[in-house]
């Protein structure tokens, strides 16, 4: 069941299996808790992804430009 709930949480589950997993989670406290907690976690991961280090990014972009110059 937890595998199905994970697919519900990440949006990859469709059709009757999704319906089955959601209706089970609505009745089962443990699975309902698991699903809501996982959704929060995945949303937080998506929204809060920290930006790349700006200085490092600038240096790497400079490296790309340098390699792109015709020799």
């Amino acid at each position: 069941m937890e595998d199905l709930l994970q697919q519900v949480a990440d949006g990859s589950l469709r059709g009757w299996r999704k319906w089955y997993a959601i209706s089970h989670a609505a009745r089962c406290y443990r699975c309902g808790n698991f699903l809501s907690r996982l959704k929060v976690t995945l949303n937080t991961l998506k929204l809060g992804s920290e930006p790349a280090n700006a200085d490092a990014l600038a240096r790497l972009k400079a490296q790309v430009r340098d390699l792109d110059q015709p020799k």
């Binding site: 992804s49 920290e50 930006p51 790349a52 280090n53 490092a56 990014l57 790497l60 972009k61 790309v64």
Partner: peptide, 9 residues
């Protein structure tokens, strides 16, 4: 140029 930021993250 397009992917560098993702790759670095």
């Amino acid at each position: 140029e397009q992917e560098l930021e993702t790759i670095l993250r």
